[in-house]
Design a protein around this nucleic acid. Sequence first.
DNA 1: GAAGAGGTTAGGGTAAACCCTAGGTTTTGG
DNA 2: CCAAAACCTAGGGTTTACCCTAACCTCTTC
Lengths: 212, 212
Amino acid sequence: MAISVGILDDHEMILEGLATMLSQTEEIEVTGCWTHHANCLEALEKQRPNVLLLDINLKNANGIELCAELSNTYPDLQIVAVSNYNESSFIKNMLRNGAKSYLLKNTSKEELITAIRKVHSGERYLPRTVENILLEDSLGTPKPKTSIPKLTRREKEVLQFISEEYTNGEIADKLFVSIKTVESHRTNLLSKFGVKNTAGLIKSAMNAGLIS
Amino acid sequence: MAISVGILDDHEMILEGLATMLSQTEEIEVTGCWTHHANCLEALEKQRPNVLLLDINLKNANGIELCAELSNTYPDLQIVAVSNYNESSFIKNMLRNGAKSYLLKNTSKEELITAIRKVHSGERYLPRTVENILLEDSLGTPKPKTSIPKLTRREKEVLQFISEEYTNGEIADKLFVSIKTVESHRTNLLSKFGVKNTAGLIKSAMNAGLIS
DNA sequence: GAAGAGGTTAGGGTAAACCCTAGGTTTTGG
DNA sequence: CCAAAACCTAGGGTTTACCCTAACCTCTTC
């Protein structure tokens, strides 16, 4: 009995690549490929594969939230996350949300098949690379933690304006508060992100996906 | 006579995907796959394919510069850029540097083959999506130009230090120059990127891939 | 209903960033 | 081989960002 696999990925190139790679293996059968999460959800209601390869960065949906949703709705469905992001925060979030494996997009064919096989048999599987990322993170370089800080309403507003190159004075005018107030929010932002100045703030906020 | 194709891409998954997709077509023969640019350069000296699929975001090299280098060294080699970046600046830079086509990673198999065929016959080929990006850019939103500015040695150094949260004074110490000199480089950076302050500088530099 | 926690609002003072100008050095091109 | 251009260097003066402290407000929580 072959392992049935479904694939959800925005990038048709990767989708087709994954599908062709897997179709060469007898023990695995690709039963569905989707480039839109809506189509995937629809298909899963009718016929459920054993394993789902799930991309994190979808166009119209959040892969991390989708993962939680799917693993709640279909506890039997084993999810393998596929992503470009090698940051520990993403990996942790996906594993917390029910993914059984986390593969980077530079994974080899052999590793991909191993992951599907392990996951199908109920085990968790992480490649060396990914395990090392988690290890380094927990043993830890004494570096700033990469978890995304929780921002207040005002802080989000100020951050957005900073990223649009407004000065504290200009932001103060827009928000109808004193310059000193804006400076306080700004200081809190630096503290929450664990950085020293605007350069670090923008860099961290961009990496966290809070601004673009 | 089949079209011989070489592929250079860090991501083994995409590499294998591309190769498998192309191997199903009789008129195309994949003669080389490389995950490191060094291996690619070495191989090209001995045996040259008709077409090279070239990823932009390589680990240890700059795809844009590599493209210019290759199309100078081997004028007969037709280069197809493959990238995740859908920003007009990247597209323009690759085309300026000798690429004959620019494909996004969500390209379909049919489009990939079409691109290789066209490029091999000497034509340029851009998918609708990519053409539209260039059109919209030139017709234009009256937005800031997104072309990547050319930086001097000192400017690159200073930019790097700024992104690492060093102050002008600290950078001055590291480079053995006056604070005022560093400030000058910094002002020139702002001017070259067309931004008003550090926030805009970091944002632009990250979007341009100059820092991470 | 008082104590505590988190959020928004500011002030005073210092350090850093930014603008304008300009001389000396290296690189480029005819 | 000389002129032009580009680059590195740096000073004076102004604006902005950052640090420390703290009042007030709202919303829990016991």
